[in-house]
């Protein structure tokens, strides 16, 4: 990796200038009068690296993959202009429920993350946190040209150009903007990959965790969260 751009002027100091106030160590007075030490970074976040979870083999895994493919729960998280292409999928004209695609409101219950269009650095941080909280096996669909090469934002100062340097992508949908039909086709492609057992990007993320983290920290200047968010 080239020069670490995450090195900022406070790095040599002990205090973390970017630490959010709610994540600071503090003592809390409990109702019974005792004083409790709270260290949110240790208490509220996971301390372990994500691990590679090997798939089972044979017909069992094939059956489970079929179930995973036919029940895609999409995280309701829109990142760019493409997020407006998702609501039409729930309307009578496109009706994604027919294909087992449903929306969920929380990352803990979602399997598919649709990165819908350009991803600003600020949103990338939230997208990483949401992605790491999703239970494995999880899949990413990258919607629009912006996620492939930056699209019309290729020289923007605050959007990323290539999504797969920061998060593992299963399916790309090219276009600016792709219509909802294209998104449905993307879901169909993702189903094919899952049924063929080729959608193991969550394990790829765990294997190359250090590489992804280095890339992410290079672009996110105020990294005020632990490395393991899940």
């Amino acid at each position: 990796m080239e020069k670490d751009m995450n090195k900022h002027k406070f790095e040599d100091l002990d205090v973390d200038k970017f630490l959010a106030p709610e994540n600071e160590k503090r003592s809390v007075l409990a109702p019974d009068g005792s004083i409790v030490e709270v260290d949110p970074l240790k208490d509220y976040f996971c301390q372990d690296r994500p691990e590679v979870q090997k798939p089972r083999s044979g017909p069992v895994e094939n059956f489970l993959n079929w179930a995973r493919a036919e029940s895609l729960w999409v995280l309701g998280f829109g990142t760019g202009c493409g997020s407006i292409e998702i609501p039409p999928l729930t309307t009578p004209r496109f009706d994604m429920f027919r294909y087992g695609v449903q929306m969920r409101a929380t990352p803990r219950q979602s399997n598919v993350f649709v990165i819908s269009g350009y991803l600003s650095v600020k949103t990338l941080k939230r997208a990483i946190r949401a992605y790491e909280q999703m239970p494995s096996p999880k899949y990413i669909i990258a919607l629009g040209s912006c996620t492939i090469n930056g699209g019309m934002y290729y020289d923007s100062y605050n959007t990323i150009n290539r999504l797969d340097a920061y998060m593992p992508v299963d399916v790309y949908i090219a276009g600016c903007m792709p219509r909802p039909e294209a998104l449905l086709a993307g879901f169909a492609k993702l189903k094919e990959l899952i049924k063929a057992g080729k959608a193991e990007k969550a394990n790829e993320y765990a294997e190359n965790f250090d590489w992804y983290k280095t890339n992410q920290k290079k672009i996110i200047k105020d990294w005020n969260m632990p490395d393991f968010n899940w």
């Binding site: 995973r68 036919e70 029940s71 729930t90 309307t91 009578p92 429920f97 027919r98 087992g100 239970p135």
Partner: peptide, 20 residues
């Protein structure tokens, strides 16, 4: 709309129990 297939809850259940 047409809505979910009638067997969708069973698939959802299998998927939920099969997460890693």
């Amino acid at each position: 709309r047409y809505g979910i297939p009638w067997y969708q809850p069973w698939i959802d259940l299998v998927k939920l129990y099969s997460l890693r």
